[in-house]
Design a protein around this nucleic acid. Structure first.
Length: 227
DNA sequence: ACTAATGTTGTAGG
DNA sequence: GCCTACAACATTAG
């Protein structure tokens, strides 16, 4: 799809499937297929035909389909680990509070932009950045390096909680996200700020505000999340 | 019929 | 090197 010419995958066996942040790594005998779903990419088992099909893999007994309406998704073959994957920051569920705080201290950028930076932490996206900032009571425009220690600790805990709850609830299906079996998630029903602009804050009842930070819609409670 | 919004990130430029 | 804005795309909501 990009970079190296298509490998001869015919007859090869999948050795292992792992995840690195938002990248899905499928290791074959002779190399690794790195898949990123972008915003609307889907990996589906035995899916019906779609005008947005990007790739199709035939296994013994089933087909694996890569479908992507907006086509921001990517698939890249490499014999080692792709560079953009190697550069990713630590997994947010693995880094401890002390290390998280230390990494954050060096950053001059706004905390929302930092949470979206995959070289800072791998795997945080727009929804979970907003949800974690709300739970921690941190304003999305706050300068990362200036956050008091109690806020960085609260943010670390909030990230852990939000991600664990989101995973347990199958992720957030805002419009068309489904898992490999075509099932929608339910975490969108538990969003406290994301997609709730104008609605009352669940904590103080004042309206949730929407601004743009790092080109992304950013939802927060101006009363509960002070600078 | 417009305009702005949507789960992301590589790249260009200050 | 660090940080920010734009572009890539298709569809939907207002």
């Amino acid at each position: 799809m990009r970079g190296a010419p298509e490998p001869a995958l015919a007859g090869q066996t999948v050795q292992e499937v792992t995840r690195h942040g938002k990248h899905i790594l499928v290791r074959f005998n002779s190399g690794t297929l790195a898949i990123h779903l972008g915003m609307t990419g889907k990996l589906l088992i035995d899916a019906d035909p779609s005008p947005y099909l990007r790739a199709e893999f035939t296994f013994d007994g089933f087909r694996l389909v890569f479908d992507d309406i907006r086509q921001f998704g990517r698939m890249a073959w490499s014999e080692s680990l792709p560079q953009n994957v190697a550069r990713l920051g630590p997994d947010p569920l693995e880094i401890d509070a002390a290390a998280f705080t230390a990494r954050l201290r060096a950053k001059r950028t706004r905390i929302k932009a930092l949470l979206l930076n995959q070289e800072f932490l791998r795997g945080m996206g727009n929804i979970y950045a907003d949800e974690a900032l709300f739970r921690a009571g941190v304003h999305p425009l706050a300068q990362a390096a200036k956050l008091p220690r109690r806020k960085t600790l609260a943010l670390h805990a909030a990230i852990t909680d939000v991600l664990n709850e989101a995973i347990a609830n199958g992720g957030s299906s805002i419009s068309d996200y489904v898992d490999t079996n075509g099932q929608r998630g339910s975490f969108q029903d538990r969003h406290r700020v994301y997609g709730r602009a104008g609605e009352p804050c669940i904590s103080c009842a004042r309206p949730i505000k929407r601004i743009v930070v790092a080109q992304r819609g950013t939802h927060f409670c101006p009363n509960c999340q002070r600078m």
